[in-house]
């Protein structure tokens, strides 16, 4: 019914990756250059050590697991991208991949969470238990993105694979596709892009008449 071991391992991985990104940023702030395998292993062990600190009789990661029940594959992919970039300088998910990911995160979060919390009588979460329309939709989205050479397509493929491997404690595909933290991060990313774009268009609109009048004067 539940592969607790997979879920337990998953509950350590995501916070460990997040901590590694934080520690690498901290090291940079302290004028170190945390690049390479040595730093990766060292800070990885430090992060693991922090997550093993006992709180109320449990490792910190398992106390966190009492609140954050699961980590989705897109969020894990973002964290892995962050870690690889921090320690090795490579970018696994490019800007366009992350952009597709955040739009996906906002879209499915806005559909899933209100309905799952009782708005209306349809429960989309129920479609994640077994192979059915949701799987086909996710598969089609993955293939479309792969056709467009967007790496988020591979992340969606990994989500289905993760579901098959039982990394979600619930056994529901939705839990591999999204989680509340991924939804909030995606919303933040989309909102900041919108704000930036609005600011840019306002600047362009404001500067256009000025440029025109300057041109007329000259």
């Amino acid at each position: 019914m539940i592969t607790l071991h997979a879920a337990v391992i998953a509950s350590f991985i995501a916070p460990m990756l997040a901590l590694m990104i934080f520690l690498a940023a901290l090291a940079r702030r302290l004028r170190f250059n945390p690049q390479g395998l040595g730093w990766f292993v060292s800070l990885g062990l430090v992060a693991l050590g922090i997550l093993m600190i006992p709180v109320a009789g449990f490792p910190l990661a398992r106390v966190l697991a009492a609140v954050i029940d699961h980590w989705s594959m897109p969020l894990l992919a973002l964290l892995v991208t962050g870690v690889v970039k921090s320690f090795f300088g490579a970018e696994l998910l490019r800007r366009q991949d992350r952009r597709a990911m955040s739009v996906f995160g906002v879209a499915i979060g806005l559909i899933l969470y209100p309905l799952a919390l009782g708005m209306g009588s349809i429960d989309p979460f129920a479609y994640g238990w077994h192979f059915g329309p949701l799987f086909v939709l996710v598969g089609c989205a993955a293939m479309l993105l792969q056709w467009k050479r967007n790496r988020f397509g591979t992340v969606l493929l990994m989500a289905v694979f993760g579901w098959l491997a039982g990394v979600a404690e619930s056994g529901n595909l939705w839990d591999c596709l999204t989680d509340p933290l991924f939804f909030f991060l995606s919303t933040g990313a989309v909102m900041s892009r919108l704000v930036k774009r609005t600011k840019q268009s306002l600047v362009t609109t404001a500067s256009a008449p000025a440029a025109t009048s300057a041109a007329e004067k000259s």
Binding site: Y127, H130, F131, F135, L156, L157, V160, L164
Partner: peptide, 19 residues
């Protein structure tokens, strides 16, 4: 790979329109 994975899940579980 995506198609193959979907085929594996489909063959294992069978198609279910209703959850």
């Amino acid at each position: 790979l995506t198609l193959a994975l979907l085929a594996i899940v489909g063959l294992r579980d069978g198609w279910r329109v209703s959850p």
